Simulated scan of single mutants.
Amino acid sequence: MIAFRPIEDGEVERLVELWKACDLVRPWNDARRDIDFARGKANSEILIGIEAGEIVSSILVGHDGHRGWFYYLSVAPARQGKGLGRATVSAAETWLKERGVWSVNLMIRTENAAVRDFYAALGYDMRDVIVMGKRDLDR
């Protein structure tokens, strides 16, 4: 049975390894910095799925005061295709609902058709928007 809860001290390196195994880490994103920034805030959290003491899934969930956002959805490669992704998204949706958030957005890399299909099967649809960004505001 899988249980979802916020990540705890001492689990960060195991989570980074999961993200690497799921090909989520990019050179321009410092995974540890992202984890530290999101953990335990009023508007964000990293939820992990634990089964038999092992981190088997995760999602960074948060909101900006208007909409919820998901990042870093991951399921251990050996466990994919067994409903853990769906359960992890559901846990994140519950986290948002508990905070009164009624709408959620997420970004998918253009080349990642499998993830696009996964979210479509969960009722998510494409939006007619352009996402723009700027890295390294501190430089």
Rank of each mutant, 00 (worst) to 15 (best):
R5K: 11
P6S: 13
I7T: 04
I7R: 08
G10H: 09
G10V: 08
E13N: 13
R14T: 03
R14L: 04
L15V: 01
V16W: 03
L18R: 00
L18A: 03
K20E: 07
C22Y: 07
R26G: 01
P27L: 10
A31K: 10
R32D: 02
R32F: 05
D34N: 12
D34P: 00
D34Q: 08
I35Y: 09
D36C: 07
G40Q: 11
I46M: 08
I46G: 04
L47Q: 05
L47D: 04
I48W: 01
G53A: 06
E54N: 11
I55R: 00
S58K: 11
V61P: 00
V61Y: 04
G62T: 11
G62R: 12
H66Q: 12
P77V: 05
R79T: 00
R79M: 11
R79G: 03
Q80S: 11
Q80K: 12
G81C: 12
G83V: 13
L84F: 15
R86N: 10
R86D: 09
T88Y: 08
V89N: 15
A92K: 06
L96P: 02
E98S: 08
S103D: 12
S103K: 15
N105A: 13
N105S: 14
L106M: 14
I108M: 02
I108K: 01
D117C: 06
F118Q: 07
F118M: 06
Y119F: 15
A120F: 12
A121Q: 14
A121M: 11
G123Q: 12
Y124W: 15
R127S: 10
K134G: 04
K134A: 10
R135F: 14
R135S: 11
D136S: 09
L137W: 07
D138F: 12
R139K: 13
